[in-house]
Computed example of a mutant assay.
Amino acid sequence: MAKITPEIPDGGAVREVLDRIGDKWSLLVIGTLRTGPLRFGDLHTAVTGVSQRMLTLTLKHLVEDGLVTRTAYAEVPPRVEYALTELGRTLVPRVMALAEWAMANREQINANRRSHGGS
């Protein structure tokens, strides 16, 4: 007999949150900020492949969601740093677990894709 998976009581809330933080750039930004605050340029260098526009949008959303803080310092030239909030730090173990799982299973997944005609 097939096991029936219990329904998630508020699937809409799960979808809403995962849509926002589950994209690759958000996860990579959160993982990168785990070691401490970074300036935009340093973050852009660390998150390989992200465009300036996409990084700007990703940071804006993470700040809106309360996962990242944006601190502007009144200096010349101006300095802005991004850091994880307490809430954002609660995601780090989960993000890192997902990253470790992806690295450990990448070869098998790629082999499966090739056997099914994928990229």
Rank of each mutant, 00 (worst) to 15 (best):
L62V: 02
V47M: 00
P78D: 12
R70C: 13
L59G: 01
F40Y: 15
R79T: 12
P77M: 02
G41S: 05
V68R: 03
Y82T: 08
Y73K: 12
R70G: 08
L43D: 00
R53I: 06
L55R: 03
Y73C: 01
T45G: 11
V68Y: 08
L62W: 00
L67I: 04
E75L: 11
R53K: 12
K60F: 13
V50K: 00
T56L: 05
V76Q: 13
G36M: 06
T58N: 10
K60C: 06
T35Y: 03
T56M: 07
P37D: 08
Q52C: 03
G31Y: 04
G66N: 07
L55Q: 06
A46R: 04
G41L: 01
L62I: 01
T48R: 11
A74E: 14
T56H: 14
Y82C: 05
Q52G: 10
R53L: 08
T69P: 02
G66C: 06
A83S: 13
T56Y: 13
P77D: 06
V63L: 04
A83K: 03
E81H: 13
A46H: 04
V29L: 04
L43H: 01
A83H: 05
A46T: 14
S51A: 12
A74C: 05
S51R: 06
P37I: 02
M54H: 08
F40L: 14
G41A: 08
E64F: 07
L33E: 06
A46S: 11
M54A: 08
Y73T: 13
G36I: 07
A72G: 09
G36C: 11
L55F: 12
L57R: 10
E64N: 13
T69V: 10
G66W: 02
D65W: 11
R79N: 04
V47C: 01
R39T: 13
E75I: 06
T71L: 12
L59R: 00
T45S: 12
T45F: 03
T48C: 00
G36V: 08
D65L: 15
I30M: 09
T35I: 05
H61G: 12
I30N: 04
I30Q: 05
A72T: 15
G66F: 08
R39M: 12
R70Q: 15
T45M: 05
V68S: 07
V47Y: 00
V80G: 01
E75H: 02
R79K: 13
T45V: 10
M54K: 08
I30P: 10
L43G: 01
R34G: 00
K60V: 07
I30V: 15
R70K: 15
D65Q: 09
G49P: 10
V47A: 00
D42R: 09
G49M: 02
V29R: 03
T45D: 13
L38E: 06
F40R: 02
A74K: 14
H44A: 15
V63H: 02
